[in-house]
Amino acid sequence: MSEKLDIDKSVLSENDKTAYKISEELKENKILAVNVMGSPGSGKTTFIEKISDFFNPEEIFVIQGDLESDVDKKRMEKKGIDAYQINTHGGCHLNADMIKNSLENIDLKSKNFLFIENVGNLVCPAGIRIGQHLNVVVSSTTEGSDKPKKYPVIFLNSDLVLISKYDLSDVVDFNENKYLKDIRNIKNSVKILKISKNDKKSIKECAEFINKKRRNLFNDAE
């Protein structure tokens, strides 16, 4: 006879459990994990390259997520930064298991920051926990000012939005007021910074924000 078996279990919970373990392990090592998300070409890798100038290369490490190739890993290594490349071979986002496996290849001692560059995609990485303590969305002026309205979930899940290629706003007619209004409607509390790769001051502000987040997480007075 047919029976009804009540389950009521979260499908996302297995990934979330792994993500939680990663987050705790990193915390024990006093490492802040930053999930860097955004479209392909928005400037995620450039942002990590540039912000690394405000840290000691030895205190950061990077996990790169791409469908194929180790182009980004090589860019990091050129800057003297430890990097690990994940190839998803078609997968549209990173998940907690992938990060867990990557961490087995990295010596956590002496590190303070982990930057995880998610697969270039403004949709799929948004809701997947990977053990991060901070969600950053890199969103460039060249993509257009309608992105928050068109792809709200990723902005809803972000702690920091970086408007990248800000020096090109005039050239591409970036409507900043509309963009900011749309983000505020999605998530009022999110921090927004404008950056350009050649404007060191703008990158320094990001480094200060991320540094502060780390200090807050660990109640560190240093």
Binding site: M1, S2, K4, L5, I7, K9, S10, V11, L12, N188
Partner: peptide, 21 residues
């Protein structure tokens, strides 16, 4: 009209019930 909110529901996928024998 505040944007200072907590999300209570709608962020999960749940397996609820299996019917069968």
């Amino acid at each position: 009209g505040s944007g200072n909110i907590d999300i209570l529901d709608g962020e999960d996928i749940r397996l609820k019930q299996i019917e069968g024998e």
